[in-house]
Amino acid sequence: MDPIVYVALGAALAAGIAGAASSFGVGIAGAAAAGAVAEDEKNFKNALILQGLPMTQSIYGLITLFLILLVSGILGGTFKFADSTQENIIKSAILLGAGLTVGLTGLSAIPQGIIASAGIGAVSKNPKTFTQGIIFAAMAETMAIFGLVGALIMIITGVGF
């Protein structure tokens, strides 16, 4: 395959999978948030913050997308790996791997949404559980963060600016 295919796929999968997973997560939590607000409008602020937690994965995806576009030169205007030399293929394949890592670990947004929705239910019964609910939801994000760490290393040390 041409290097451009790897690079484009890497960027697309990072932002695409993570973004889709985030929207699932935010959706699940949002449904719970709507219920909590119907119970008592005061729950709005807490529910909104909890609902926003599964959004971070899509941001990691977006950052990865931009980094891939940046190091491959697409964002600068000239694609650095245009020739199908072996080195260019290796570098662009690394970018695909990095994108895929962030995309797949981004799937953690879905369980995070489930945890967040349970947290929203708990907060509407007892507002004191707010921080605990956030921590529980943040546990699921760990995997996405590890994915981002891995991808950043792959991009910056494997390809570089």
Binding site: T56, I59, Y60, L62, I63, F66, L67, L75, T142, I145, F146, L148, V149, L152
Partner: peptide
């Protein structure tokens, strides 16, 4: 121990998001 890697990831995520906006 490796969990502390999030310090780096979130630090870079901040500069990453800021960079995206700036671009």
């Amino acid at each position: 121990w490796l969990s502390y890697a999030r310090l780096m990831a979130l630090a870079l995520a901040t500069s990453g998001i800021a960079m995206v906006i700036n671009i």
